[in-house]
């Protein structure tokens, strides 16, 4: 190691190796990702964010929201549940099938179970176990399907329904994955909190909405102005001690409105080939009630779902 050129070549090839591995190869693999079909629905995903939300991403970037909020849901595993949706016409056969797939079940419980359908019969199975159970039930004339359920601490916390995947971000610049969770994850914030007014009040004075919040107030996104003839329809409704002096009103600036539009566009729970999940009847309803998009996304009784799901179920 006494020659300059040798040293140069060594350093050059070492760096070229890492450049090839982590710049060029990933670019070839995921640099050209396109929209794709949602599993079981003829809808393209993801859709580009609306213009106002895209302006909101600029506000998000400029004020470093990603320094404290991540936008990535982690998942530790995928399990299968068995959903029983109809008992069929042969109750004794279905009952014996039920005892077969769920050995500890007592007879009254089984009858109770059949009378309150649809029902999440089994939870947390491996794909092949779930497939066997479904086969047994279907042979008996009942109607059962396998539901794919992602699990993990983030999902249990309600931060998302499935893990984040590369495709969720193809239209974003900059991609704000974040590196820390000083505040909660925002990948699905519009699913948890779809109220624009809540977001505006939270940005103006975080502790009004979340007691003890460590988030700084973003009052510079709002404007305090004198009420002229009549109050603005956009004026914030605030409690008296946090509100403006009498005769004044607080109105969100365009930046605040754009930022809230962006936050309300954050939702990544569509079932995809690379991140499958099944929206179950009942289970999906809790999160989806006030989100209009959920209605299109839930293939609850679409038979296509069971055709599409075997991607990671080798038993079929």
């Amino acid at each position: 190691m006494n020659y300059g050129p040798l040293l140069f070549l060594a350093a050059f090839f070492a760096l070229a190796g890492s450049w090839f591995g982590f710049v060029l190869t990933p670019q070839a693999q995921i640099g050209q990702l396109q929209q794709t079909n949602i599993l079981g629905a003829p809808t393209l995903y993801p859709q580009a964010r609306p213009g106002l939300a895209r302006q909101g991403l600029e506000v998000y970037r400029a004020n470093g929201c990603a320094d404290c909020h991540s936008q990535q849901v982690r998942q530790s595993a995928t399990v299968c549940d068995v959903l029983l949706s109809a008992a069929g016409t042969n109750p004794p056969a279905v009952l014996s099938a039920l005892f077969k797939v769920k050995p500890g079940l007592s007879e009254p419980d089984a009858r109770q179970c059949l009378s309150s359908l649809p029902q999440r019969l089994l939870e947390g199975l491996k794909p092949e176990e779930a497939d066997t159970a479904v086969k047994v039930l279907n042979v008996a004339g009942a109607k059962a399907v396998v539901a794919i359920v992602p699990v993990g601490p983030d999902i249990a916390r309600g931060w998302g329904k499935r893990r984040s995947v590369a495709r969720d971000f193809i239209f974003d610049y900059p991609v704000a994955l974040g590196s820390q969770r000083i505040g909660p994850d925002l990948a699905n914030i519009s699913m948890r909190q779809p109220d624009a007014g809540w977001h505006l009040r939270h940005l103006y004075a975080p502790r009004l909405e979340v007691k003890g919040s460590a988030m700084p107030p973003y009052r510079f996104l709002f404007e305090m102005r004198k009420i002229e003839r009549c109050p603005s329809p956009d004026a914030m409704v605030l409690p008296r001690d946090a509100g403006p002096p009498p005769g004044y009103e607080i109105v969100p600036k365009p930046e605040a409105i754009a930022l809230v539009a962006y936050l309300l566009s954050l939702r990544a729970d569509a079932p995809l080939f690379e991140a499958p999940l099944t929206f179950a009847p009942g289970a999906g309803a809790a999160g989806g009630t006030n989100a209009p998009a959920a209605a299109e996304l839930t293939p609850t009784n679409a038979p296509a779902a069971s055709d599409a799901t075997p991607t990671n179920a080798p038993a079929k």
Partner: peptide, 8 residues
């Protein structure tokens, strides 16, 4: 670049 390639 597109999508998460930026993060990578």
């Amino acid at each position: 670049v597109r999508g998460v390639m930026q993060s990578v």
